[in-house]
Design a binder for these strands. Structure first.
Lengths: 243, 243
DNA sequence: GGCACACTTCGGGCCTACCCGAAGCGTTGG
DNA sequence: CCAACGCTTCGGGTAGGCCCGAAGTGTGCC
């Protein structure tokens, strides 16, 4: 547990509204240009530039120049983990305008978390994969650790039947990277796990290929009519629970 | 992944040096009085009182009144997780004074993390338990997730042989709580896992009973001569690696 | 080559919030 | 019952940092 590390400097970097907005915009792993991030944070380009310089200097963000653009992205997965941990503690921002309200609702329904699905749909998808036997859950110990709530030791294993069912859908778990096949991530809006890891990413990619989902701005994911039908029919997702 | 949550307010709460010092002091799960925390943060009692009120209002900390004292503690394990995630990103504070230097060294050698061992000793202990066959490691997937660094899916299972060896040491894994038997925690100073969970706590408690370790102020753990001998001889810990 | 664009640096205005000491309230102990 | 203690509230001084607009550098496009 923490002891001597200078938490304050990192937290202060994340604790300024404009910088937090920048980090949140980068939270799905994309690289974005400075102007885009300025708009995202609702500040002037000059202001954003200063904030970005501080984020880079604090090693939370890296830059890559490309022509006259400079693309920023999170420096490491650990940064995303920290944002995730903070989001779990954060009060949900109160809704001010109608558009904010609909966006807040949309982002809770279905969004991307890096490269996989999150929100009610992400949670329902994982539930469906487990209840239909595509994945088996192994719990280590029972209940939740009273001391370390995060990182509950739960492991999702792809079954043989699951492998063939996914192959029928066009998702073949080749080992293209050294990335773990399954991983989970506690959803900040649902407070329940959704599927991450290689499989989580592969499913989102395949859903997009099939025309089941469309990636809208601001991390929102829109599900098409074919998508709702396919998720329910082919994977057993409880689409009513996702609205 | 984060989307709409108001990360900035939480991070700002953690991003002020005095408040961060308070949170770090509470990070091992203790309840401490306001005056103690003021001293810990090097601010006047009145200043600390204001910070504590804000931490309570922000739901990072809870209070319990007892006579003329008020005892503060972290509001939830999630708060500790967030601190942990930030500590992993934090630059190690540069050493200013000799006493800070020796303390920084001591805390990296052996410290408590909540109720179990961390630092080089904590890491070496887990290594020893694995290499001597007390625990078996199960990896799910291979390597590290390029997207989600934290929460690597690794599971430590107590072996039959391990159970009897621990019993000989006076540690019997009764199921006294619903807490998981084993759990790990990425050590912020070593960037490698150390043992947490019920077993991690039981081992620290037993080491203290045996007079192997003494809990010094500021989370530092001192190992006695008998402790070094016992750790090496009975558990196979590479004590040289711990210094 | 020249204009438009992306971005950064600089200067100055403003405001937040951190800090402390003094004073007030409640509790404990002699 | 009074003194010491723990803690909080209040007032005022200070400093740091956030914001923008204007100006400067470098790149791409016509």
């Amino acid at each position: 547990m923490p002891g001597d590390a200078d938490i304050a400097s990192v937290a202060a970097l994340m604790g300024e509204p404009a910088r937090a907005a920048v980090l949140m915009a980068l939270a799905d792993g994309r690289s974005l240009a400075a102007t885009t991030l300025a708009a995202e944070a609702n500040v002037a380009p000059s202001t954003a530039s200063g904030h970005l310089a501080r984020l880079v200097e604090g090693r939370l963000v890296t830059v890559e120049s490309s022509g006259r653009h400079r693309y920023f992205r999170l420096a490491s997965p650990e940064v995303a983990s920290a944002l995730e941990a903070l989001a779990r503690l954060a009060p949900h921002r109160q809704v001010r305008s109608l558009s904010q309200g609909t966006h807040a609702e949309a982002i809770r329904r279905a969004r991307t978390c890096y490269d996989h699905l999150a929100g009610r749909l992400g949670v329902a998808l994982l539930d469906a994969l487990v209840s239909t036997g595509v994945l088996h859950v192994h719990e280590v110990g029972e209940g939740s650790d009273p001391v370390l709530g995060a990182g509950r030791a739960r492991v999702y294993v792809l079954t043989g039947d699951g492998t063939s069912r996914l192959a029928a859908l066009g998702v073949a778990p080749d080992p293209p990277t050294r990335r773990p096949l399954t991983r989970y991530c506690i959803d900040w809006s649902e407070q329940r796990p959704h599927l991450a890891g290689w499989l989580g990413a592969a499913l989102l990619t395949r859903f997009a290929e099939l025309g089941w989902v469309l990636r809208a701005p601001k991390r929102v994911v829109k599900v098409t009519d074919a998508g709702w039908a396919g998720l329910a029919g082919r994977l057993g997702v409880d689409v009513d629970a996702c609205r």
